[in-house]
């Protein structure tokens, strides 16, 4: 299962890299969302997959009974999801604001700080 999921993660990464290389910053943003998901899945898969055994400790026990899913990557991914969301929300606002001020979503046309050098 892990291996097939790895292939899927590869497909996600490929799609997001392709999107992030676009000139339209909205596409870049879509790529950002996808690559966050891909990164989270990478961490999750690398910690191995265990179906139907959440990392919980039953009442009356001091430790989980039997094999349970790896709790560490879950905790890491949980943090990463929230931070990824914060990043996305800010980037979206930035894109929105940029469009309002500059009237374009094409990154090549956003040259206010670095005007195109005159060709020599």
């Amino acid at each position: 299962m892990e291996l097939l999921l790895s292939i899927m993660v590869g497909a996600l990464v490929a799609a997001s890299v392709y999107l992030m290389l676009a000139r339209n910053v909205l596409r870049f943003l879509f790529g950002l969302i996808l690559i966050s998901n891909a990164a989270n899945l990478t961490i999750f898969v690398a910690g191995r997959l265990t179906p139907e055994a959440p990392p919980l400790i039953p009442y009356g026990q001091d430790a989980p009974v039997g094999v349970v899913a790896n709790a560490l990557p879950q905790a890491l991914v949980l943090t990463a999801i929230v931070i990824g969301f914060g990043l996305f929300a800010f980037a979206l606002t930035l894109v929105y604001r940029t469009y309002q001020n500059l009237g374009t979503l094409n990154s090549d046309e956003m040259r206010l700080a670095e005007p195109e050098e005159s060709k020599k």
Partner: peptide, 25 residues
Amino acid sequence: LHAALALTVGTLTTLVLFAVLQSDL
């Protein structure tokens, strides 16, 4: 060109994950 790079990066990610999964946890 972008698609080729994207495919390369995607494939490499998969390969790295393969390698990670081969090793002991």
